[in-house]
Design a protein around this nucleic acid. Sequence first.
DNA 1: ACGTGAAGTATATGCTCCTG
DNA 2: CAGGAGCATATACTTCACGT
Length: 345
Amino acid sequence: MGPGPGFEPGLGDPQPQNALFGQQAFQKPQNQKTKNSLPATIQGNSNESDRYIITKKHVDLLLLELKANNVAQHHLNFVTRTIQRFLDNTTNHGEYWSFTVEDLISHLQKIQKQYSPSFYRKNVTYLKKLFRIAGIPLENHLKTPRYIGVDMTVITLRDVQNLTKTIQKLQLARDPELSDLIANKMILGLLIMATGGLRVYELTSLPLSYIDITKRTISVPPEVAKTGQPRMTFITPEVQALLRKYVKKYEPNPNEPVISYFSLEKPFIRKQELANQPIRPKHMRKFFSQEWDRRNGNATVKKLLMGHSIRGDINALHYSHHTPESLQRVYDKVFGKLKFNVKLL
DNA sequence: ACGTGAAGTATATGCTCCTG
DNA sequence: CAGGAGCATATACTTCACGT
């Protein structure tokens, strides 16, 4: 186990208090009449009673854009709330809303005071987006504060094994909240992510039928892949065997994912033994990435399997001649012998 | 078993500046 | 001047905590 999850608390969030307006706005002293005055660019072409307009159409366009991008419902809800919260602090005129710079400032200050820096940041981000759509020239004056939060967890084969053992211990204890079925689903799901490099979200929305157990391939279709780019990845012979056993025993619906998001996540929150673990489902993908490196796997192939962007990677772009077969050959060379020694109970 | 809102984080893309 | 390093920003996924 490495330094543990989480991030250096000291490194993050440079004083959000000053983050309301971008650097440029504060850099020119002549723009600041008093401590609380507004940037000249805003004052210059507007007086205090100038009002900006947001119409229903603007909001619809923003949401449409997100929908067109196929974002998760959860995320769409979040953006909707964010916009609504802002509009609630403006003047409603029926089909449109109007606000002044002062309204905006007081709204953002409220958010800043009440919520986390990350929440504040996201509010600014999506309000900017709305303003862009509405042609409101405030965008350049809004700065999203930076933050640092990188999960430096080192995760080894043993960590994954410990995790599966913990789950099986609960399973053996006949925990009423963790049936055999769920425990087995969890273990399979975790190992599929660990050996295929899938994201949690991808795993829990990928129908089982997209995993070809005989060939050991996983095809991730565009609507499942985070990037919208379809890709192919693989599982190890060990996981293949586990999957076979699982399918035989439970005959799961091939149109359903191996495990649902809730079944996978809940035990990690509800069960003390799992909640105390520093390892989470998302770390399985991390394991994949780290283990691949430990085994000196080819970096370009890793990118392709994980579905990372290959922008600016000339080398990778020329890898387009990689066929599924050649990818699998590389995969097997690196991960063919990877074993967790897990048995389904 | 599923919902919801907030907090946290991963990763793509943008931008600037530099170098062979 | 293409290509890349390095940082900033945009964007959306993941986890947590508290519900029903």
